[in-house]
Design a protein around this nucleic acid. Structure first.
Length: 200
DNA sequence: GTTAAGATCTGCT
DNA sequence: GCAGATCTTAACG
């Protein structure tokens, strides 16, 4: 159990210097957790996308640092949260050494605890399968917004946690969703056969 | 200062 | 399957 302010060594040790594509694959099967005032919300990451700084026009950092994307250029293990389409937030994990500008978009999680809180956030008519199966939905269900941009994901209240039961996963690689450039790159990864991904 | 586009979701056809 | 909602961001003048 993680106490307030306590460091979770999982992410910092395992992923700090790894290639962003490897982080995208490596995060699958582990936990995203948010200790909210109403209680713990957590889920298993089942779908991710990698955004690279070089040769990847779809990446927000493709044309240099701006006010929106500056946390992407910060240290690995930070949350990069941005607002999109006038309605939604997207949650990313920053990767690579400072100044690189790469991140992994968390697209979907399989809800494991705090389902009642997620339903409260999303609306009563949504079932477990439809609570967090998309980047915008995930942020609503978990209560993630702009205030977590730049938050260290090794620390509460929003953090990544190792799944000791994970074992070896079968991972499917695919093209990314919702972009108009860089559409040919196979930078989308999800747990094969998962019912909780945004698209199959 | 103005404008066009966007790493989406929902509801309707 | 498709269009509309909605508003921040960044590029351009």
């Amino acid at each position: 159990m993680v106490k307030k302010g306590e460091t979770v060594p999982f992410f910092s040790d395992l992923f700090k210097e790894m290639h962003t594509v490897e982080v995208a694959r490596g995060l699958l099967g582990h936990y995203l957790c948010h200790q909210t005032p109403a209680g713990l919300v957590s889920g298993i990451i089942v779908e991710t996308e990698a955004y690279l700084s070089r040769g990847d026009p779809a990446c927000h950092a493709a044309s240099g640092k701006t006010r929106r994307n500056e946390t992407m250029f910060g240290p690995a293990g930070m949350a990069y949260v941005y607002f999109i389409y006038g309605n939604y937030y997207c949650f990313n994990v920053v990767t690579r050494p400072i100044g690189t500008g790469e991140a992994v978009l968390i697209r979907a999680v399989e809800p494991t605890s705090g389902l009642n809180i997620m339903k409260q956030n999303r609306g009563p008519k949504y079932e477990q399968l439809n609570l967090a199966n998309g980047p915008g939905k995930l942020c609503i269900a978990f209560g993630i917004d702009k205030k977590y941009d730049g938050h260290d994901l090794n620390c509460k209240p929003l953090y990544l946690d190792e799944n000791s039961q994970r074992g070896e996963l079968e991972i499917t690689a695919a093209t990314r969703i919702g972009i108009s450039v860089g559409i040919e790159k196979m930078y989308r990864f999800y747990i094969s056969g998962s019912q909780y991904v945004s698209r199959r």
